[in-house]
Computed example of a mutant assay.
Amino acid sequence: MGLLGAKAPPERAERALDVLRVTVALLILIHGLFRLVAGGITPFGVWLESQGFPLGFGWALAVTLFELVGPVLMLARRWTSFAALGHAAILTLGMILVHLPFGWFVVGAGRNGIEYSVILIVSLLTIAWAYWPMRRSAA
Rank of each mutant, 00 (worst) to 15 (best):
M1F: 12
G2N: 00
G2C: 09
K7Q: 13
A8C: 12
R12I: 15
E14H: 11
D18W: 02
R21Q: 00
A25D: 02
L26W: 10
L29Q: 14
G32F: 03
L33H: 10
L33V: 11
L36C: 02
L36T: 01
A38I: 00
I41A: 06
T42C: 00
P43L: 01
G45P: 07
V46R: 08
S50R: 04
Q51H: 11
F53A: 09
L55Y: 04
G56H: 03
W59S: 02
A60P: 08
V63L: 00
V63T: 10
L65H: 08
F66E: 05
E67N: 11
E67Q: 12
V69T: 08
V69N: 11
R78T: 09
R78G: 00
W79N: 01
F82W: 15
F82S: 09
H87T: 06
A89V: 13
L91N: 02
T92D: 07
T92F: 13
I96G: 09
I96V: 09
L97E: 14
L97P: 04
V98S: 03
H99Y: 09
L100F: 01
P101M: 02
V107K: 07
V107T: 12
G108M: 00
A109S: 15
R111F: 13
E115A: 10
E115Q: 05
E115C: 05
E115R: 05
S117G: 01
S117W: 08
I119A: 09
S123H: 03
S123N: 07
S123D: 07
L124V: 10
T126F: 09
I127K: 11
A128Y: 10
A130L: 03
Y131H: 11
Y131C: 02
W132P: 04
M134Q: 13
M134T: 14
A138Y: 12
